[in-house]
Computed example of a mutant assay.
Amino acid sequence: MLHTPVESREPARRRLPISRQEGALLGITALWGSTFLIVHLAMQHSGPWFFVGLRFAVAGLVGIVVFHRALRGMRWRDVGAGAAIGFSIALGYGLQTMGLQTISSSTSAFITALYVPLVPLLQWLVFRRAPRALTLVGVALAFVGLLLLAGPDALTIGLGWGEIATLISTLPIAAEILLIGFFAKSVDAGRVTVVQLLVAGAVGFIAMPFAGEAAPSFSWAWLLPGIGLGVASCVIQLTMNWAQRSVSPTRATIIYAGEPVWAGLIGRIAGDRLPPIAIAGACLIVAGVIVSELRPGRRRAADPAPAAPSSSGADPQPDLG
């Protein structure tokens, strides 16, 4: 009499199409997209650098409460990594917030998405790794999309200050992603998260006098969003530092490409009405982001996740493009 093997009686476990880390990145991407409208509204009551300082100072304080035990083992490597990432965060969010004073949250989000195809270009400059052909195609699509999103004036070099500030902000935001990938496996995620948030907050406040910005008069309209976004920023930065230890940069950047889509949907609900040509430009930007990360003819297994964390500081050059 034949006996059914024990293994065959057990129900097969279904593997989810995405990992837990990828699901977390999807969640923070949606959260990230919602912040554009909140910041845009807060800019009616506060200056950009003060708001950035408040937002990340609150985030840093939340991080201290959450990771106070891990902070006892702080190393200079954690401090250095956190300071570098924090400076990039402050510069990127500061310029982006300046732009949100004059442009809609949807427009800001789609322009900000240009940081994704910029990541492999920065890697080319820093690590001397030439970008793939599809990366260049993606950059071209995103550039055409930017022109359409900015409107007819863009063809006569008529981008407004808000669009220009947001466009410049994509460089430090791309550098942030590059730095996170660079340090991810050689530092403690909790410690680095706290340091980078505190540094970003400090840089925001320090930049105020240089930008000619005074502290705003008290208003719940900037205090509550500042506190709420501070908590959200802590969650977002911690999740990025944790998830990118096991999610490949390619997969992570494709997930991040959904950020402007979420922002556009939320902006639409709030009353943003982009003209058809701008919507076409937004679609081209998202297409450029995705195309720049495609790897045709490669199996998923060929795009390995990063190795387990190591204190040796290995993997100094992540594959971001």
Rank of each mutant, 00 (worst) to 15 (best):
F127R: 13
A113F: 04
Q123E: 14
V119H: 03
S106R: 10
L125N: 04
I111L: 15
S106Q: 10
V126A: 13
S106A: 14
Q96D: 00
A113S: 14
Y115W: 07
M98A: 08
F127K: 09
G99T: 06
A109F: 09
L100F: 13
T107V: 15
V119S: 04
Q101P: 00
S104V: 13
L125F: 12
F110E: 05
T112D: 01
I103T: 02
W124A: 15
L121F: 11
I103G: 00
R128H: 15
S108M: 01
M98I: 01
L125D: 03
A113Y: 04
T107G: 00
R128Q: 14
G99Q: 10
Q96H: 03
A109L: 07
G99C: 05
T97N: 11
Y93V: 06
Y93P: 00
I111G: 01
T107I: 15
L122V: 07
Y93T: 08
F110H: 04
G94S: 05
I111S: 08
L95D: 09
Y93G: 03
L100W: 10
V126N: 00
L122P: 05
L95T: 11
V116M: 13
V119A: 06
P117L: 01
V116D: 04
I111C: 11
T97M: 09
Q123I: 01
F127W: 15
Q101F: 00
S105E: 01
V126H: 07
T112E: 05
I111D: 01
T112Y: 06
Y115H: 14
Q96R: 01
S106K: 09
V126C: 06
I111T: 12
W124L: 13
A109E: 07
G94W: 06
W124C: 10
L118H: 10
F127E: 14
L118S: 11
T102N: 10
L125M: 13
R128E: 06
I111V: 15
V116H: 09
F110I: 08
A113V: 12
L122W: 09
G99W: 06
V126R: 12
G99E: 10
L100C: 14
P117Y: 04
G94C: 04
Y93I: 09
A109V: 10
L100Y: 14
P120V: 03
F127C: 06
T107R: 13
L122C: 02
Q101R: 09
S106W: 11
L122D: 04
T102K: 05
Q123L: 09
A113G: 15
Y93K: 01
A113I: 13
V126F: 14
Q96N: 03
M98H: 02
T97E: 08
P120S: 08
A109Y: 10
L100S: 12
A109M: 06
T112L: 04
R128C: 06
L125G: 11
L118R: 07
M98T: 02
L100R: 13
I111H: 02
Y93A: 06
F110Q: 07
F110V: 08
S108D: 07
L100K: 12
Y115I: 08
G94V: 03
R128N: 14
R128T: 08
L114I: 05
F110D: 04
L121N: 04
R128K: 15
L121Y: 03
Q96E: 07
M98C: 02
Y115G: 00
W124R: 05
T97W: 03
L95E: 10
T97C: 07
L95N: 08
G99P: 11
L122H: 03
Q101Y: 00
